[in-house]
Design a protein around this nucleic acid. Structure first.
Lengths: 160, 160
DNA sequence: TATTGTTATACTCTATAACTATA
DNA sequence: TATAGTTATAGAGTATAACAATA
């Protein structure tokens, strides 16, 4: 069934297809939010507060720090976040939600939950939980490495 | 654990993080292949043969038909694929692998299998199979809809 | 000297539109 | 008239480099 020459069994194709589907629908749910789906992720990170600086948020979200500047410019202009000076390090800025930002985040969260459930529609509730848990474990783990890409590359080369 | 305001529980963040991780490592495994990871997917689609025309392949891979033209130009220049006239429709072209393309695909497949296993490293074998199966079901299902995005959008709007 | 954040610039990727040839 | 494919152009998104302020 899952022969090596089957696109559907390719992790890259599967991830790409699902991600495109999710982004296509999610874009409509956050159309009026600065930065779109990623603006939402910035709000979520800011809501936790522990992420703290712009650089930390950028790395955790997988965007360049310069992109984070543009994202925050737009979100701040919309009155959803504020850049506060970090008392411990005067170079850094701490991103905090405004009252309007908190309300907006709550609203967008509800919409995106619906999008997620739609995308995971083919699965029954138990399977959705399983998939979410597995994906989360992989994502959190990959977020931790980020450095040993070179050793992996060597391993790949040597295999051939 | 998974409060609504937790980025790690967001499907968009999870998908984005894993996809970036996969692409970052996979790019090294297919560095010398025209089109990179997507060039590999084109080869895989061509290997099956049933996909047939460029347009069908482009839709299945989630790229614009103009991008498919560029991808095939490079792959053909590298001698990995050929564009054959479709006997049933003289407007369309059938993409077939050359002998070199078949060998190259086999080689790249082995490398990318290793990349996949590395990305899924945090999971044990049984969990990897479960995750692959669930992802595949979601991806195949989403590939089939592609049209009812509008009705979903309405549903999202009405929920707020 | 190294790091955070900003700005300006350049580059890559992708989509849009116009065109040819077939249907 | 509509579709498959190509080409050229324009646009969005992203990264690169230089800068200021701070560590």
């Amino acid at each position: 069934m899952t022969s090596p020459s089957n696109v559907e069994s390719d992790l890259g194709w599967v991830l790409g297809t699902i991600t495109r589907s999710y982004l296509r629908i999610a874009a409509q749910a956050v159309a009026d939010l600065p930065g779109g789906p990623r603006g939402y992720q910035v709000l979520t990170s800011a809501a936790r507060g522990d992420a703290g600086t712009q650089l930390a948020m950028a790395q955790h979200l997988g965007v360049d720090r310069t992109v984070m500047t543009y994202l925050l410019d737009d979100l701040e202009k919309a009155g959803l976040v504020e850049r506060k000076p970090d008392p411990a390090d005067r170079r850094a800025r701490r991103v905090v939600l405004t009252e309007a930002g908190t309300a907006r985040l709550c609203d967008v969260e509800r919409r995106l939950r619906r999008v997620e459930e739609h995308v995971l529609g083919p699965l029954d509730p138990a399977e959705r939980d399983t998939l979410r848990a597995l994906l989360q474990r992989v994502a959190v783990a990959t977020g931790d490495e980020r450095t040993d890409a070179c050793s992996v590359a060597e391993e790949i080369q040597n295999s051939c």
